[in-house]
Design a protein around this nucleic acid. Structure first.
Lengths: 155, 155
DNA sequence: GTTGAAAGCCAGTAACT
DNA sequence: AGTTACTGGCTTTCAAC
């Protein structure tokens, strides 16, 4: 489906604040409330908007430690990869995971309360997977930026 | 401020779906609507909930390409780092950026529509910064996982 | 913490251009 | 696509417990 400039405007606003009342959103984009409401509904129905969430303060909710883990698999086989992906998706410590090109096969961003929790994660998730050849961990000293916003190029 | 189990329950629900009506949220956590409403308000006021956003489909909104860029700075000086952090925060292509220990100083997750856009990003952001000694880019073949959820250990 | 009530605002629908 | 008109339901606040 094609997005016009009003759609992009709506998305731009909602991806910053989705608690804005439809009446106000409508005014901001220059539509009547029902017309705006219909567009938002369509954007949800067509999976342009895939979720609506509250963002929690990681500091205040027990994710004080962030680590970056690069993983190299034993074999480049689909089953091996798929199994790893399944594990990753079930591990709540893993915030982001990318399959990448280069020396390593995956990079993960891991969030935990403390080093003990990370050790547990390593033991339970990484050391139990026999398909992992090796992994390398970097400690994050600071999250410089973290956003869910995507760029919506206006035309 | 201390979070009790009801708070954690509320947060756990809202960080998955913040469009749930307060009446329903109240029922799910076993409180009356006003009591639940008060708690949510407090969680926002105290910055436990730091934002409420719609998550957009990156595929459908022009962020088809994800890259991981590791950056090594020329000098380990605060001003140099701070300048880089400022640039990173203003660049909409940068979704996440972590200051890390190890061989590199920063790792960034960059989202762009295509390779051309990435080249522009490299030219405008990375090559113009004389404090960057070098950087290394990995292409993400697939986003295995990406979540905003934090773990809320229940007691 | 609860219930009950009240006010007003909003979401969501309908009918129509 | 868009509008205006409507209504039922919800948020939000209050008072009393």
């Amino acid at each position: 489906m094609e997005l016009d400039n009003i759609d992009r405007k709506i998305l731009g606003i909602l991806q910053r604040n989705n608690r804005l009342a439809n009446v106000e959103l409508a005014e901001e984009v220059g539509l009547s409330p029902p017309a705006c409401h219909k567009r938002v509904k369509r954007l949800r129905d067509e999976n342009i908007i895939i979720g609506d969430v509250s963002i929690l303060n990681p500091e205040l909710t027990g994710n004080k430690l962030t680590l970056l883990v690069s993983v190299e698999m034993e074999r480049d086989r689909k089953e091996v990869y798929d199994a790893f992906k399944r594990v990753v998706n079930q591990a709540p410590e893993v915030k982001h995971c990318y399959q990448i090109t280069g020396n390593y096969d995956f990079v993960m961003v891991v969030g935990v309360p403390d080093m003990q929790a990370f050790e547990r994660f390593v033991d339970q998730v990484l050391h139990t997977d026999t398909n992992i050849r090796k992994f390398q961990t970097s400690v994050s000293l600071r999250t410089v930026k973290s956003t869910t916003e995507v760029q919506l190029s206006e035309f």
